[in-house]
Structure formats: C-alpha cells, structure tokens
Amino acid sequence: MKVTKNIKLSAIKVLQTEADAIQNLIFFINDEFEACVEAILASTGRVVVTGIGKSAIIANKIVATMNSTGTPAIFMHAADAIHGDLGMIQKDDFVICISKSGNTPEIKVLVPLLKRSGSKLIALVSNMESFLAEHADFVLNATIAAEACPNNLAPTTSTTAHMALGDALAVCLLEARGFTSEDFAKYHPGGSLGKQLYLTVEDVIPKNMIPLVKENASLSEVIVEISGKRMGATAVVNEENQLLGVITDGDLRRMLQVRTDIQNVKASDIMTRQPKTISKDEFAIRALNRMKEFNITQLVALDGENIAGFVHIHDLMREGIV
C-alpha cells in the first residue's frame, strides 16, 4: 500500500533535527578542541581513525578527507583491531575513536590496548560520561539531543554530528598547514575536479590552430580563415601582429543582416575591438568562468602580448571541465 501522508513533514523533521545538532556543535568547540589540533600538528605520526558499525563508515570518510587535505590518515576497524590490526599503530600516531555511547564492549576492550601502545587517544563521542571519554587524552564532544529516527535508535543525527566534527578537525588541520589548492591538486589529479586545479589554457588550446587575418583583409579572406581553422572566429592583427580585434561567425551573420554591399568590407570594419582575452598560463577553469561571464564561446589566448591561439568552449568540454 502506498503511503504518502506526512512524508514531506517527516523529511523536513529529519533535516531540521540534524541541522540543529550540527548547529549545537559550535558550543562544543573549546580549548580542548584547539589543543587537539595543535597536538596533531606537532606530531610526526599519522592519524588512525577507528570505530564499529556506522561509526566505522564515518571513520572511513574522515580518513579520506584527511588524506586528501594533507593529513596522513589510515582506517582501523575496532573489531579487527583486537584480532591483529593493532599492529598498524605506531607510537607517534594519534588514534581517533568514534562512538556514540563510548561504552560498547569492543571499545572497552580496545581503549586499554591503545593506551598501552603509547599513542594518543582522541575520543569523538556523544556521551561525555562514557568509558571512552573518561580514558581519552582529548575529547571531541559530539553530544546530540536525539536521533532523527522516531524511535531514537537508528544512528542518524549522531553519525551526521560525528562526520561534521571530523570535517571541522580536518579543515582546521588543512588551514594550519597552509594547504593550498595547488597542494589539493596533487592528490586529485584525476577527473574534472583535478583538471580544474591544474589544467591551464595552454594545455587545452589546439596546437598550430591560430586563425588570424590582417586588418585590411577582405571578407572572403576572413571567411576562409574562420572556416579553415574551425575555431568559429579569427583574430585581427596589424602589421606588427598586435591584436586589434576578433571576428566571430556570429559577427559575419549579423553583418549580412544589415549590409547588402559587401564587396569592399574589410576585417577592420566588422571586428569586435578590445576582445576578451586570457593568458595561456591561466587555469582553464578561469577561461570557462570568463566565457560564462560574458556569454561567449571563445577567448583569445595570449602569450604576453603575442597571440597563442584560441580557447573554445568545446576544448573545455572535451577535457571534461564543463
């Protein structure tokens, strides 16, 4: 039977409950949180993140975020830890243990073993009176009022709060290390995200395809250049090869709509003066943003004052940036 009653209200309630929980975490960002960040920064070890059940899934996400933002991290499942995986922990490592209750049997077995290894223990916990919180070197408070589940059982609000606090920790470490977008690109070379961070205009402009005509070129010469180089446009230059303007195929169509006598039309008569340009050394994503800003499909790429070519929207699409 299809039940639609109160579906929207239920969804809104879940989102509001989780949003409120994250908002309340602001009040738990205290001196201990700051000291925890500073201790990790001063350490020569890694960050080992552990948990069980849903907390293990959140731990994996935090590990992925830290690794991609300059903080070396590894995941260790809390159940596997007591069956051999403790061997991955080194003395200078920091171990973040994620748990809502902080009192599960696995946690109670694991904590003394972690303390014995000499590594520092960080509790990311929603119960400040728990066994985990009591024995940790640092406690990141992720207390929540209730789960979004109507039975207050399924991990929903708690896992959201844990992930958000893990993000806060990772970003604080990122900023403290001075981690830049260039650093980020080193860890994300694949996909469109990576290309936005390292691909330059020079990388995408077609080689040996520089359509250009002199300012006194005839209309037929302009058409042949635009058609032959297949860029949808041509640059117009003076005798010193300095850029004067650009003629697009759109300019040609608009000219034919208003002029009947085209015998004596020269390139300088129909070109767009002061065309939009971009340095060949700029990131390709900035070329895309510039095209969007001016609602155009190509830009003249410059090498200093010289024309390096044209970058077309299709070039960016081909690279998967659009």
Rank of each mutant, 00 (worst) to 15 (best):
K2P: 03
K5T: 12
L9R: 14
L9T: 11
K13C: 08
K13T: 13
T17S: 10
E18H: 10
F27W: 05
N30H: 09
E32G: 02
E34K: 13
V37N: 07
E38N: 15
A39K: 10
G51T: 03
G53E: 01
G53N: 06
K54S: 09
A56V: 08
T71V: 08
P72G: 13
P72K: 13
I74Y: 10
A78C: 13
D80R: 05
I82W: 06
D92N: 15
D93L: 04
F94A: 03
L110W: 06
V111R: 00
R116L: 11
R116I: 06
S119T: 12
A123Y: 07
V125R: 02
S130D: 03
E134V: 01
A136K: 05
D137I: 05
L140R: 02
T143W: 00
I144F: 06
A145I: 14
E147G: 12
N151W: 10
N151K: 11
T160E: 03
H162C: 11
H162A: 15
L165Y: 13
D167H: 07
V171H: 01
S181K: 14
A185L: 05
T200I: 04
V201F: 07
E202N: 15
V204W: 02
N208E: 15
K214D: 11
L219G: 04
E225G: 02
S227E: 14
E239K: 14
E240W: 01
G245W: 07
I247H: 00
G250C: 03
R254E: 06
V258P: 00
T260R: 12
V265K: 04
V265E: 03
K266Y: 04
R273P: 02
R273Y: 13
Q274A: 12
K280C: 05
I285W: 07
L288P: 00
N289P: 00
N289I: 05
R290D: 01
T297K: 15
Q298H: 05
L302H: 09
I313Q: 08
I313G: 04
H314L: 12
H314G: 03
V322R: 02
